[in-house]
Structure formats: structure tokens, C-alpha cells
Design a protein around this nucleic acid. Structure first.
Lengths: 204, 204
DNA sequence: ATTGAATGCGAATGTATATTCGCATTATGT
DNA sequence: ACATAATGCGAATATACATTCGCATTCAAT
């Protein structure tokens, strides 16, 4: 942030700009998100935008920070560890994921679709970290005798698999696959995978 | 294609342009891929580019077609069905996937990273179709008594999970996870999942 | 060799959009 | 009320490209 807002109105302006950024991205898509349009929606001038954000990227970065906090708060509120059943636990997490991706009228969807053009590091790290902690706690509690090796790898695989499969499904939205079915199948794949000790194999 | 090349040199020009497009995308990234640069690399002028391609998108579309054919040919050459073991079969497919993504000096990587901005329909359909056929054949041969329901959903999940997990891994390339480990773990997750009948559950 | 069509050229044009800057307005402390 | 800093403005500027168009060159058929 180029300059720190000191007075009340400018603090509101900064917030309005971040909100407007989210709205414009959601309504016009990232490609058609211009500083002019953001300023217009925020009800201020472009000049004011550059008072507090060094450039467009700075503004978007601020939005990402804000969303990372939002998701983080949502995750902490989920009582995932209360589930004794791994299946139920994974299913809750997946349904939370769908809820987030479907929320805010497609904003999250558009952001995830533009993944690599956005400063997503903070969000990714947060997610990875959260699920890593969760996994550690769960397996410590339920699998003390069969410590799961490769937990980092597994969490990485599971997080990415679920996230991008959901995104692709919502994106094409072709109706051939129902969201509930997808959630259930993802749950089964993930829960089975996480519950399987490294050497064990099911296949014939 | 705006105009069909009739003479030898123009046919070569069209091919040179598509090759140049691939090279520029691979070397400068999709964002910095300009028509001027493409023409320069192809050794022709921008004007000539527009003789045969209505616009930049048309050129990129031609590139995608060409790559779809390339991948399709590679897939057909893979003797996946010769594997009796599902694990081995899945592993072969995943290693083929890694090989493709790592080939052409990052071209495929850059393309997949820009997935939603590109005309990927043909490629996706081709992949989905191929693996769908493969799965049908395999389960017909080995699981006649336990017909797998939801095969569409499963193939969808598996394809997207593997593809985007690989992409994210190659993209960040942080060295914490080795590609071999990732391939093995992905294989286990996928093979176990595909081998599990709908009602069966492993988790405690 | 001639001619019309195909091909090739690249400076010029048009468009879109990020960013700046000089001036106007508003707030805060005394 | 005054002075000074903070805030706000938006036309003007700068840049980066995609695309066009009039002219030059090459090809292929007769």
C-alpha cells in the first residue's frame, strides 16, 4: 500500500476499492477488470485509487489477503476433528470447499480459474498448512500404531485433486455429473487413500 | 483459417507460424506472446500471418489442434491394456502424463497453466474419451462380475486430479516433493479408487 | 514472355488501458 | 479563523498490441 490512510473517509475508500475489485472481477471477469471500472464501482476516481495502491496488482493483492483471511476464518469454524469417521471428516471438508467455490456469485471460481496469474501463495500456503495440521492431529489420534508416511505428499495430492476437480466441474457445468455425486466420489477416493497404509494394496 | 494456402511456400509458412507460436509461448509465456514476435520468429511479416489466420486466436487454435493430434498419437502408442495389474496400468499412464508435461521445454506446462484462456475443449474431450474407453475395456475384461458404476464420474475425477496435481507440482517445483514419489502416490490413490466397488469402504 | 492470381511486406492506424500530475476540496490541530 | 497536511479528482500521457492496407514480389499457367 503506497500510502497509509489516516482519516476515516480514506479508510473507507480503501475498503470500498477492495470490495469494488471483488465485484468487478466477479461481474466482468479478471480480463475485463480495469482500474477505471474499479474506481467507478467504488464511487471514486482513478487518481484516488493510486493514492493507496501502488498499482493494479497491489489492489488485487490486497483483495487476496482479505479473502485468505475470510477462508481461514471459515476453516477454523469447521468442527472437522469432531468427526470420528474419516469419511465424514473428508466429506465435510469437501462440502465446505464446494460452498466456498460457489459463494460470492462466482468470484472464487473466477479467481481459481486465473490461479497462476494471481498472487495466490498466501492462500495456498494457508490451505496446505491447515489441512496438514488437521491430518497430523487426526492420524495422531486414530492411527498411532500405523504412522502415515509421506503425509506432505498426500496432503498435497489430496488438496490439489479436490480443488481443481471441483473447479473444472463448476466451470464446464455440463450437467452430466451432479455436484453431490462428485462430492461423494471425491470423498471416497480421498478417504480411502488417506486411510491406506503405504504398503497395503487393494488392486488385484 | 482465413485463406487456404495453395502453393508450397505458403503451406510451409503456415506450419512455420504454428511452430513459431509454440516456441514463443514456450520461451516468453502466453502473456508475452505477440503477433509481432511470432512473425519474427517464423521469419515472416505480420501481414503474412493475417493472410492465413483471421486473428491471433485462430493461430493459437491451430496450435492446439496440432498438439491434440500429437498427444492422441502418443496415447494410442501406449500399450496400457497389456498390463494385467491395474496399478501398473495407471502408473504407465501417469508417467506418460508427466513425460508429456515435461516435454517441449515447458510448452505444455505453460498451456495447462493457462487452461481456461485457451480453446482446450478438443484436447480435454480427447483425453476424457480415451481414458473412458480404456477404463471400459479394462473393467469389462477384469471385473465382469463387479461392474463399476459411475464410470464417467470416476474418470472425470481421476483425469482432473492427476493432471492438475502434476501441473501444480511442476509449477512450484519447490523440491520438497520428488516427482517419482508423487507419481507413485498418485498411482496408489487412483488405482485403489478405481478398484474399489461403489459400496465398499476401507476407512475405520 | 506475359499476365493474373497468390503471396509477402511492414509502416501506419486504431484501440484499450495503466499510470501520472497539477489543481481542487476537505479535514485536523491551534 | 488560519495554516498545513491529507485526500480527491480526471483529463492528459504513455505504452503495448492487434489488425489493416496499399504496394512489392513471386508463382503458375498459357
Amino acid at each position: 500500500m503506497r500510502k497509509h490512510p489516516q482519516q476515516q473517509r480514506s479508510r473507507e475508500l480503501v475498503k470500498a476499492l477492495i470490495d469494488a475489485t471483488a465485484n468487478v472481477i466477479q461481474q466482468q471477469g479478471l480480463d475485463n477488470t480495469t482500474t477505471a471500472r474499479i474506481a467507478e464501482v467504488a464511487g471514486v476516481s482513478v487518481g484516488s485509487l493510486y493514492q493507496y495502491f501502488g498499482d493494479k496488482d497491489g489492489l488485487i493483492e490486497a483483495l487476496m489477503e482479505s479473502l485468505a483471511d475470510e477462508i481461514g476464518a471459515g476453516l477454523k469454524r469447521l468442527p472437522l476433528l469432531d468427526n470420528v469417521d474419516l469419511n465424514a471428516m473428508v466429506n465435510s471438508a469437501i462440502r465446505f470447499g464446494f460452498a466456498v467455490l460457489n459463494s460470492r456469485d462466482g468470484l472464487y471460481l473466477e479467481l481459481v480459474r486465473n490461479w497462476h496469474r494471481l498472487p495466490t501463495e498466501r492462500v495456498v500456503d494457508m490451505l496446505q498448512q491447515h489441512f496438514m495440521d488437521l491430518a497430523r492431529l487426526y492420524f495422531l489420534r486414530h492411527y498411532r500404531d500405523y504412522p502415515i508416511r509421506n503425509l506432505e505428499v498426500r496432503v498435497f495430492i489430496v488438496t490439489n485433486s479436490v480443488l481443481f476437480t471441483m473447479v473444472r466441474h463448476i466451470s464446464q457445468n455440463n450437467g452430466l455429473i451432479r455436484e453431490d455425486d462428485l462430492a461423494d466420489e471425491l470423498t471416497r477416493m480421498v478417504a480411502n487413500y488417506l486411510a491406506t497404509p503405504p504398503d497395503h494394496q487393494d488392486a488385484p
